[in-house]
Each structure stands twice: as C-alpha cells, then as structure tokens.
Design a protein around this nucleic acid. Sequence first.
DNA 1: TAGTGGTCTAGACCACCTC
DNA 2: AGGTGGTCTAGACCACTAC
Lengths: 256, 256
Amino acid sequence: MSKQPKYRQVADALRREIDNGTYPPGSRLPSESELSARFDASRNTVRSGLGLLVTQGLVTSSQGLGYEVAKHEVFELNASRFEDLSFPQIGDAYSTDVTNAGRRPHQTFRVEIRPAPEEVAARLKVEPGSRTVLRFCHRFVDDVPWSTQATYYPAWLADEAPRLAEPGDIEEGTTRYLAERGTEQVGYFDEISTRMPTPEEARALEVGAGVPVLLWMRTGYTVDRPIRCTITTFRGDLNRVNYEIGDQSGRENEPQ
Amino acid sequence: MSKQPKYRQVADALRREIDNGTYPPGSRLPSESELSARFDASRNTVRSGLGLLVTQGLVTSSQGLGYEVAKHEVFELNASRFEDLSFPQIGDAYSTDVTNAGRRPHQTFRVEIRPAPEEVAARLKVEPGSRTVLRFCHRFVDDVPWSTQATYYPAWLADEAPRLAEPGDIEEGTTRYLAERGTEQVGYFDEISTRMPTPEEARALEVGAGVPVLLWMRTGYTVDRPIRCTITTFRGDLNRVNYEIGDQSGRENEPQ
DNA sequence: TAGTGGTCTAGACCACCTC
DNA sequence: AGGTGGTCTAGACCACTAC
C-alpha cells in the first residue's frame, strides 16, 4: 500500500463517511476551513479533495452555501415498450410515464428545418447537410431539467406528411400520425452511449461537473427505409433505460 | 455575455483548438509553462483549465509526458442479439464479437460463492445475503481493460447445474449449458445506466477522471422465475450498447 | 540532467447567501 | 457583517520520462 497524497486521503475519508451515513444524502458537509483544520491541510488541498468528490458526482457545491451530498432518485424509462402502438395511450409516452410515476411533467417544444448532422445523415441514409425537419423537446420533471430530445425526419417524409414541419404538437403522437398516413414504423435500432456533457449540454440540463449524460439514439424504419432518428440526452444521475426482451412472465410472477 | 474566469477561457480556447483540428486526437498539447506564458496566467490557473478538459474526457495527462488529446474508438455491442441461441456460435459471444471486429480479446475469469448483494437479490427474488454463485470476468481488448462482467446465479440453480460453481470456463456457454439441462432462458430484462466510476472501477478499467462507466444489468428468466443477473461495467468512452427491435429489413437495405 | 506534470502551501481578493 | 465557496497568484519541492 503506497502512501496516498493528502488530497486523496481527504476525499477517501469523506467518501467513507458519506457511504456509511455520517453525511446522508441532502446533508451539508463541514466547511472548507473546518476540513482544513481537521485534516491539517491547506484550504487548497482540501479543495482538491472535495473537487474529486464533485467530479465523481457524489457531492455538489454552491457559492455561499457549502457542499451538499447529492441525492439520487432515478427515473426508469422502458425503451422497448416506449412506442409500441399496441399499448394505446393518450398524449405522448413521456408525459404518461412521468405522470404515472407521480411527478409533474413539463416541456418546451420547437420545430426547425435544419441540415442533417453527419451522425444523423448516416442513419437516415441521406446526404450530410441535406434538409431535415427537426422536432426538438426540452423536458422537465417537477421543474428540474431532465432530458432533451431531438428527432430528425428526412425531407422526403416531411413532404408526404406535412404536419411534421408545422410548429405545434401532434396530438396523437407522430408515430401514430405517420402510421395513419401509410408510413408505418415496423422496427427500430437503438444505440446507447455515455460521456461527459459538452458545455451546451451542461447548461441545458443544469448538470454540474461530475454528472455524465446518457445518450439514447433511436432510428426508426419502415419495411424498406429509415424514417426518423431521435437523439435523447438524459442526465445520467437521474435516469435509467430499460428493455424487456422475450417472454417476461418469469419477471412478474411472485417468488415461489 | 458575462466575463468568464480565466481558467475557463483557457479551457474554452483549447477545446476550440482541439475541435477544429489544431490538436488532433493523439497529439500533445503545449506544456503547462508554455500555456502559462501564452495566456498570461499562473501555472495553477492553467492547470485548472486543463483539469476541466481532463474531467470532460477530452484530454489525458501523464507525469513526465504531458497532456495528450484523447482518441475515441468505440466498440459496439449488440445487446439484443447477444445471447440469441438461434445464432449458433462457437465459444462465448464476447470473443466472437471482438475477433470479428479485428481486435484481440483476452480475459481473466474466476468463480466464487458469494452472498447476494442487495441489488442482485431483488432481481433474482432471493433473500439479500443468501448464497449465490458469482462468475466474474475481466475483459481486455488488445490488452486495454475494457469491461468487467459479474454474473450471479441463485443457489437453487447451482444445485441443479453443478458446473456453474466449478472453476473454469463452460465451453459451450452457460446459457446453452443451462438450456441443455432444461433451464431455458426465454426472456430477459435489461437496465442501462451511467455514473462516474468508483475508485475500484477506475482501477479495474484503468480510466482516468473524466470517463464515465456504462452499466449494463441483465436479468434472465425462464417462464416462471429469474435465473441469473449479469452486471457489466464498461468504459464509457470505448463502448456503445445497441438493440435491434422489430423488423430490421429497412435498416439493411441500400438507400433507394 | 532537464523538462514534464503532481502535490502542497500561504495568502489575497471576489461573489454569493444568510442574518 | 460574517461566513461560505470561487478565483488567482507565486513559489516550493517531488516524481516520472526522456536523452
């Protein structure tokens, strides 16, 4: 066991105390100067240690207030059931899910005509930079920024289904609207990845350092071509994505 | 537009230069003292700025060498196809996938009898702390630590299928072995989340600060009960998890 | 040996919150 | 006003890498 630098000792000691309940979620840590005295270290060294905990997402800090132990309430998103048309629903799936969880949803919405970003163009099988309709959603739960969702539709589809490019919500859901016009999504391909937020994402989702984002990209297909690409960016500390695959009867049964 | 602190200006300037190709992936950044002169800032301030880029996973640093712009090669894991028995395969799915990608796989493996962690117990519908068989895998690609995978089996199943608790690989795959003994996995439930690594995970996966982990938890079921829970921890910068759901013919077609 | 990043200190001043 | 964290400096010494 080699000797750890002092700022790591500070971080490790505080992490232990957070884990064992000395500082429960939501509580305040001692101030920098108190910790400085306790660990016989300069304020800067203590700050380095606290900085580690912040970048690990364990605590948050705010000027004038102090350091607070982070709370973790995760919200589950069932991705495999999310847009199954055989589950009839009123309004969009997101509001339904959030309301069922006893939380208060809220979203802002806009529609733009935009050149296709490279990533999206490849998935929609169109030229990079070609015209797409972007329907963009910024979602909140109990007024906390939760996720952003950007769905791109290729120009040819927007011509066939003009309401896609009109501002304002599509009451029955876009998937259903498209299905009614003969463009039925029969399959999709999901890609899930994670990384630290860009400065823009950090602003949109109000995440501090130390909270990664969860990226969920869904490309939807008819029997012969892609019709949409949806990129959802979640706060990683508040969300989990689930898939149910195959027969689920063994999951719902009571333990014997 | 309010004035940014100097260390952010440093980070933003360097981030722009990384994005626009001035410092391509794999290249070295100027040294701290050079940057200190360029930005007319103290070395500590420059270090704060570089620290931001490190915690965002954009650059890595090493003592005596300097700062290097991170490379990103992501490896795709097809989760929906991963254990489908209708795709016959030799050896385990991981080695197959990695070899197909032209990379060199390598893994260490061990089996233990362990009390069920709370998370696992809930999913296996057994008492927390009750006996489980843990089959643990530490996986490398081209000698880079890639992921760890821990699969827990309940005690009752290990009694029925004794090879589960024996050390050493199961040649044909555990899923296939269990199916041959009459315990067929007919469905599974996947949960995907992300967070910053714990110190242990950081050590096992050799990730620096600024790289989140991607957690993939799969619970497998027979028609009437859970039979296993697999927790895979990936380096978030190197992996992506995919799902194919529904009819995929529209994905594989050529663009018209 | 020279140059790099890693750790640590002491002290200054500022911005924000609470009382 | 007094306490909190946020920014910044100047300088010291250590550890690692390259040559």
